[in-house]
Design a binder for these strands. Structure first.
Length: 621
RNA sequence: GGAGCUGUGGUGUAGCGGUUAACAUGCCGGCCUGUCACGCCGGAGAUCGCGGGUUCAAUUCCCGUCAGCUCCGCCA
């Protein structure tokens, strides 16, 4: 989202209010503390004020010198007059951008023609009587101001300077407020915040682990947790009943705008609660967050969509419901047609789906070819299309259809002249997913910013993994199957539905959860389907299986991506914006230089030998 | 692992097979008592990311490489 569209309440530069408010972002003014730069108002005129802050800007008029002084609360103008203290004025002339100063003086109302309506503090100014330069500053490599468009390289390297920009302070404050609201909300419902280990053991499946070598047990490794999954289940066995944690998670996978190697989850688990009450709990939490942070009311309950319907109607398990363009099943007319590709797909048990793109019948042949190439990138074998024109159709495949079949397709898709129809044929899910991506590519450019929440339910328990040529867990291996599907576990595992669900917001997967298996036998049956022998399961998960034998209660929970959530609140495209010290797309930290080589002594203590070096050539061995 | 985009004074950009490499801002010096993106005058500041190739000549074209970003694969 372009910066201009940032939610006004959150990131506005200055509000036009003269009342004393907290710093931008909304933390409360500190009780008993004198007001900060941005908090001073006309009512404070006539008082003696002492301020600390950074020099935002200096305007030197020769005998008169103005300083914009900045602290976390905002800006205020400081005036130095050469008719006063000589030494004071000489010191002020030495000030430069980002010098840190302590200023004391009388706060005075400005003359009416000198008021600056842009600044909250524009009605007053500080007439300096004392100035202390607390620290000097080199000229910063970029301007400390909002709306900056500096190179990301530079901003990450000097992240502490980037953080001085008010909009970044507001982002941190917004995140803080969100976390505080979450804590208060869950605390009010009997949940305990409990920390779980960051040094744990590697478990199979899922993402790659970050490993930490053990000095005490050379050759053995801790893993950083991909999530606190197993520990929160053990807390349920431990009788805690209601747990949450603002939990740091680590996954060693390639990154994206919405993925960092370490990220934060709102991790929740409860016993005896069941899916319905958990949904209500989460809907209440989202309602509270949107109400308090954005002033928006959410309609409740959130709609629900079975996974299979999400795929068939939207071609994705996280549909963006802010616009329509649902996929249409055109299998019936396709079956009657002479088009071999469609008929072959249908005879193989697949489907023919269509996406209507309004008004895109005007695309040129080359644009349509490019579109087909993109579809192939998305996994399609090809892309068939029909263009509805006044009184007919334009398409290389129209000749395979009778006029009646074409009319039937047109009617199913509700096509009007000027529309483009795109087709995908194949296994139901695969074909739909290609169209689902094209649907997003053709989404209306100006989507409304209002939140459309959605629960996607009834995920399958397993999915087929073509690489491993076996089953893998659609959610994770501890997800409970639906009771009524239990008999199918061995006979028809791909048909088994799980008790897993996703919370989706405007096409973004905010989190996913499930009811967990709490019977040892069921857990072993699921492990077996995943190709884990009992011996292997005992080796990795004996502690969990054993715990299930000691009165494990029925339990379930959910984990929400806090970074994504806050990024949605602030209107940022990348979660890097709402993380104080983010890493690059390559997983490096440009500020500290992590990851970095370590000394031979460190390696030796850990019993490690490095086989080959990185391109910049670490220390040899 | 793959693809695309970007890389030019401190910063943001322009530019082009032959330029004294342009503009803005910042920086330094001077002037200035009501500015608030202050103004005016002067000045310094760039091996055009790095390496190789093509060419009489490369910042410009080609190849490679590095860094950042975006996407695909991957992310139970």
């Amino acid at each position: 989202m372009p910066r201009e569209e940032l939610p006004a309440r959150l990131l506005q530069k200055e509000a036009c209010s003269s009342s004393r408010e907290g710093p931008p972002g909304g933390t409360a003014p500190s009780a008993g503390e004198p007001p900060g730069c941005g908090e001073l108002r006309a009512a404070d005129a006539g008082t003696e004020v002492a301020l600390n802050g950074w020099v935002q800007r200096r305007r030197d008029h020769g005998g008169l010198l103005f300083i914009d002084l900045r602290d976390r609360t905002g800006l205020v103008q400081v005036v130095f007059n050469s008719e006063g203290d000589r030494k004071l004025f000489a010191a002020a002339e030495r000030l430069r951008s980002e010098y840190v100063v302590a200023v004391r003086g009388e706060l005075r109302r400005r003359d009416r023609d000198q008021v600056n309506p842009v600044l909250k503090t524009g009605e007053i100014e500080l007439h300096a009587a004392h100035l202390e330069i607390l620290n000097r500053s080199k000229t910063p490599p970029f301007y400390i101001e909002d709306g900056l468009h500096a190179d990301e390289n530079l901003r990450l390297r000097y992240r502490y300077l980037d953080l001085r920009r008010p909009e970044n302070y507001r982002r941190l404050a917004l995140r803080h407020r969100a976390v505080k609201l979450i804590r208060d909300y869950l605390d009010g419902r009997g949940f305990l915040e409990i920390e779980t280990p960051a040094l744990t053991r590697s478990t199979p499946e899922g993402a790659r682990d970050y490993l930490v070598p053990s000095r005490g047990s050379p050759g053995s490794f801790y893993a950083l947790p991909q999530s606190p999954q197993l520990f929160k289940q053990l807390l349920m066995v431990g009788g805690v009943e209601r747990y949450f944690q603002i939990a740091r998670c680590f996954r060693d996978e390639d990154l994206r705008a919405d993925r960092q190697p370490e990220f934060t989850q709102i991790d929740i688990e409860a016993s005896f609660l069941g899916q319905e009450r958990l949904f209500a709990l989460m809907e209440g939490l989202m309602t509270r967050l949107y109400g308090e942070l954005l002033g928006l009311e959410l309609p409740r309950p959130f709609p629900r969509l079975p996974y299979s319907e999400a795929i068939s109607r939207y071609g994705t398990d996280k549909p963006d419901l802010r616009f329509g363009m649902e996929l249409v099943d055109c299998s019936a007319p396709a079956r009657e047609s002479e088009f071999k590709i469609f008929r072959a797909a249908l005879e193989a048990g697949g489907a023919v789906k269509a996406l209507r793109v309004p008004g895109k019948g005007s695309l040129s042949r080359k644009e349509l070819d490019d579109l087909a190439a993109r579809a192939v990138e998305y996994g399609a074998k090809g892309l068939a299309w029909l263009i509805r024109e006044e009184g007919g159709w334009r398409s290389p495949i129209a000749k395979f259809f009778s006029p009646g079949q074409l009319e039937q397709i047109g009617a199913l898709a509700e096509a009007v002249p000027g529309d483009l129809l795109l087709f995908a044929a194949g296994e139901a899910a695969a074909g739909s997913e290609v169209l689902g991506r094209l649907r997003l590519d053709f989404a209306p450019p100006e989507l409304p910013n209002e939140p459309h929440f959605l629960w996607v339910v009834d995920f399958p328990l397993f999915q087929y993994d073509p690489v491993a040529k076996g089953l893998s867990a659609a959610h994770h291996p501890f997800t409970a199957p639906r009771e009524e599907d239990l008999p199918l576990l061995e006979t028809e595992p791909l048909a088994v539905r799980s008790q897993a669900y996703d919370l989706v917001l405007n096409g973004v997967e905010l989190g996913s959860g499930s009811n967990r298996i709490h019977h040892r036998e069921t857990q072993l049956r699921v492990f077996r389907q995943l190709g884990l022998t009992e011996a292997a399961a005992m080796e990795k998960f004996s502690f969990l299986l054993e715990a299930m034998e000691y009165g494990a209660p029925p339990h379930g929970g959910i984990a929400l991506g806090l970074d994504r959530l806050v990024a949605l609140f602030s209107g940022d495209e990348s979660i890097r914006q709402v993380i104080a010290f983010p890493k690059t797309a390559a997983g490096t930290c440009l500020l500290t230089g992590a990851p970095a080589a370590v000394s031979p002594q460190q390696l030796q203590e850990l019993g490690l030998a490095v086989k080959s070096f990185s391109k910049d050539g670490g220390p040899g061995c």
